[in-house]
Amino acid sequence: MKNYIILVLLAFANFANAQSFQTVFEDNTYQLTGVAVSKSGRVFTNYPRWHEPYRYALVEVDKNNEVKPFPNAEWNTWDVIKGGDKNTHFLGVQAVVIDDKDVMWVVDAGYEKNAEGDNKGQKLVKINLRKNQVEKVYSLYPTLGAKSYANDIRIDTKKQVAYLTNSGEGGIVIVNLKTGNVRQVLLETEVTKADPNYIMQRNGKELLSNGKPFIVHSDGIALHPDGSFLYFKSLTDDKLYRVSTDVLNDKTLCKTQLLTQVEILGAFTTTDGMAFDKKGNLYLGDLEQRKIIRLTPELKTEIVLPNNEELAWPDSYHITKDGWLYISLSRIDEEPRFGNQRKGPYKIIRTKIK
């Protein structure tokens, strides 16, 4: 009985320590996925070109819940019928991040309906936030083709390397930011492909997309604060992996050799994005239970935001130096393809973390 009481008290303490959250921005019309916050507090989000209605790819959010296309209207104007220059327009922005040097990086997954062969315009775009101008465009083609989907990204400013996930096929893309060289590793391996035996659920039912199992490969990605390890996982299973960045950047290793260096840390949760704080805690969502958790450096699970139906598909994460965790809520599982109706607006929220 005594042990039971102790367990109950510990569970209550864990729940009581969970934080509340504030709504930073909401949009009841256009579906957003990303969130990024500059050192000065500027807030940005992006809208993927998945379905109508669609207006802008990348925007800056003001304090009046209004948005303006960023870095300008021209980059956000691309004709889906006629096409155009894929290198000077956003086609289908999937993610936006701001690195520790206050530089913005935009992942454009392209637009396959207007692809020329395998080239659907997938690229990485670097934006100077002081000048609000595009500085450089890194084409991800031909390393990534029509079956690929560039998803999330982390930047190592010391090594001058960008790491992206390919959730279409399962793989890790490495971009040398000095030379522009793009290569892909761990392509279609068991660590970057979703476990087919895992059945993702919502409200006790299998999550089916147009009647078929919902499967998304390598998606969430996070770089340890000291840059030593890259953490990654598929969206539609609960396994978390990591690999040394020194190993990742060793071009002499073949796929088999690299695969032996990947560590499986355990089965934790289904999450979309994830992010580290400066203490080495890793923040993840729980898409099935609608909550936010964190893993301590000792891999202990702690609740940050408890189960709440308002936490509708936590998508992307950004942690500021003053201890705010920003999260985008994209309500993906409420799309019509899942046989559901959207129950609320798309949001960006934030919660204070210790």
Rank of each mutant, 00 (worst) to 15 (best):
Q160P: 06
K113S: 10
E135K: 09
P336M: 05
D315R: 02
T260W: 09
Y47F: 14
T301Y: 09
L284N: 04
I215F: 09
H224P: 11
T320Y: 10
E169N: 07
E135L: 12
A267N: 15
I127L: 04
T296K: 01
K212A: 04
I98C: 01
Y198V: 07
S20T: 12
E263A: 07
K126H: 00
T192V: 10
L10C: 10
F44A: 05
I349T: 03
N249P: 02
D272M: 09
S244A: 08
R130I: 15
D102G: 02
T29G: 11
V103Y: 08
S20F: 06
L299I: 06
A162W: 01
N166T: 09
G344S: 09
S167Q: 08
E206D: 15
W313R: 01
M274D: 03
K82H: 13
V24S: 04
G117M: 11
L186K: 00
K39E: 07
A73K: 13
A146V: 14
D152E: 13
S244V: 06
W78H: 05
L295E: 03
K347C: 00
D195L: 05
G266P: 05
P306T: 15
K193E: 12
V67S: 00
P314C: 14
P213A: 03
S228R: 10
K239L: 14
S330I: 06
T269R: 02
E309T: 14
Y4D: 13
N203M: 14
Q22Y: 11
K343S: 15
A16Q: 10
W78K: 00
K86S: 03
E310A: 14
Q31H: 05
A13M: 09
I174S: 03
S244Y: 07
G92M: 05
D102H: 05
F21S: 04
C254I: 14
D226Q: 15
P71H: 04
P306N: 15
R342C: 10
V262R: 02
S20H: 12
G92D: 00
M200F: 00
T296S: 13
